[in-house]
């Protein structure tokens, strides 16, 4: 008789249930109508089942986004958990789509579902990848731009996990500043 360990049949639960969203830029529709929920998951195995099934970011058409957010948080500034928040923003050069985009996005997903920021993970709302012709962007959204300790910890761990060289600075910007900016750049509230 073969003894089967629970490891072999019980899925590994995640701390949070997550929702993956897809945004496709169709100018004939409203912004909200272009945003679709793909699926939710709350185990490691179901995360991989979903990830293995969908297109890599680098294969998406320009103007598309993936958003991974905690269940109950919508991937928009207006959500109660986002409206006082902000994001750590990684901007990629055009050349980095081939070299880094998919690797950085997967690393971002692993940071979220694995709760890589310890107790500061509670400040995380989600993450977004924007595929754009002028340069792709990846960001981790947190809930309150005044929570400096949490934000700085998240930024340091995230930068390390992505393998961003120490001399390269990444910035955290509040959604309010991003929404009301006048030029093409938003001022950083924090940098690491």
């Amino acid at each position: 008789q073969e003894i089967v360990s629970p490891e072999d049949y019980i899925k590994h639960p995640l701390q949070n249930r997550w929702a993956l969203w897809f945004f496709k830029n169709d100018k004939s529709k409203t912004w909200q109508a272009n945003l679709r929920l793909i699926s939710k998951f709350d185990t490691v195995e179901d995360f991989w089942a979903l990830y293995n099934h969908i297109q890599l970011s680098s294969n998406l058409m320009s103007g598309c986004d993936y958003c991974l957010f905690k269940d109950g948080i919508e991937p928009m500034w207006e959500d109660e958990r986002n409206k006082r928040g902000g994001r750590w923003l990684i901007t990629l050069s055009k050349q980095q789509r081939r070299a880094d985009l998919d690797r950085f996005w997967l690393e971002t997903l692993l940071c979220l579902v694995g709760e890589a920021f310890d107790d500061h993970s509670d400040d995380v709302c989600g993450a977004v990848v924007n595929v754009r012709a002028k340069g792709d962007k990846i960001s981790i959204w947190t809930t309150d731009f005044e929570n400096k300790d949490a934000i700085v910890h998240i930024g340091q761990v995230y930068k390390d996990r992505l393998g961003v060289p120490p001399k390269v600075i990444i910035g955290y910007q509040s959604h309010t500043d991003t929404a009301t900016k006048s030029g093409s750049t938003t001022k950083n509230k924090f940098v690491v």
Partner: peptide, 18 residues
């Protein structure tokens, strides 16, 4: 309470298991 934390190696190892 306790937080369920998985490091990247564990998560990546789970990808290839059936």
């Amino acid at each position: 309470g306790t937080r369920i934390i998985y490091d990247r190696k564990f998560l990546l190892d789970c990808r290839s298991s059936p």
